[in-house]
Each structure stands twice: as C-alpha cells, then as structure tokens.
C-alpha cells in the first residue's frame, strides 16, 4: 500500500499546494497561536504537511492543508497516513515514532475561498471520540 504514486516525483508538489500550505501556516501561527511550526515538502510525501505544537499542548501534531474545492477519497487518506512514519525516520525531528497503524492522527486544515480555515482531526482506525 505504501508505494502507489507517492514516491520521488522530480518536482515534489504543484504550486497551488504550496499556496495552501502558506495560508494554513499563517493561520496556525497568527490565529491559532501554534508554535514550533515547520513545513515538510519531502518528495516522499504525497502532499506537503505542516507540523507544530498547539498553544495548550506539548505534543507535535501534523496538519494537512487541503482546499474546500478538492475532492477527497479513502486512498488519499491512506497515502498520507502511510507516509507519516517514514517522515519521522527521515529526521524531521519526530520524537515519538508511531509504528502501529491504529492511533495515528493528523489534522486537516480545510481552506475555503474566503481564506477561512477550519480544522478537523482525522485518526486512522477506530478512534474513540473524545467526549464519549
């Protein structure tokens, strides 16, 4: 599952994804007050990602910028999740290596045309809801 279309394109990611990345990065930094933000555009990633630490948290979290106009699919989620641990090994400073499939999570930062950004937590597996 890990290979399909995710590895080594010569030009890593198209321009519009970098644009999205910028909007979400700015939003996280100045509106949501995240710190230790860094941008990941390794060619091994199907999409560029942002990592950072929320103001009330201590753990690094992953953010995947997407556009509201995009269509999504299970395959795309799987490709992004499958690329996550590799990134930890690639020396991006991930201190906790998540090996099991179940329990990995990231945030989708959904950008709309009016530059509103909303955040949704996506976890792989059967992640019990926080409030239940």
């Amino acid at each position: 599952m890990s290979t399909a279309g995710t590895t080594t394109p010569t030009d890593p990611h198209p321009q519009y994804l970098h644009h999205l990345l910028q909007i979400v990065h700015t939003n996280l930094q100045h509106q949501a007050d995240w710190h230790s933000l860094s941008i990941h555009t390794s060619p091994s990633l199907p999409r560029p990602l942002i990592s950072g630490i929320p103001p009330e948290g201590t753990k690094k979290e992953w953010v995947l910028p997407v556009n509201l106009r995009e269509k999504w699919s299970l395959r795309k989620w799987a490709e992004v999740f499958d690329a996550l641990p590799e990134m930890d090994e690639d020396g991006d400073g991930g201190e906790e290596k998540v090996k099991e499939k179940e329990g990995r999570k990231l945030m989708m930062g959904v950008v709309s045309d009016d530059s509103t950004v909303v955040y949704y937590v996506v976890g792989e597996g059967a992640v019990k809801p926080k409030q239940n």
């Binding site: 799987a78 955040y119 949704y120 937590v121 996506v122 792989e124 059967a126 019990k128 809801p129």
Partner: peptide, 28 residues
C-alpha cells in the same frame, strides 16, 4: 461531533484489507 461521536468512513483497499478513518472537529 454534534452528537458526541466521531464520524467514521472506511472501505476495502485493493488488497481486501479494510481501513477506517475517524473525523472529529478540531476544536478551534
């Protein structure tokens, strides 16, 4: 999130393995 649950989507990949993802509001 509105009913204190998570929204789950899932399906079978090409190999017959089922993978699921759970989505909740990020809270901000």
């Amino acid at each position: 999130t509105g009913v204190k649950k998570a929204w789950m989507i899932g399906g079978e990949d090409g190999t017959g393995e089922v993978r699921t993802f759970c989505v909740e509001w990020g809270g901000f």
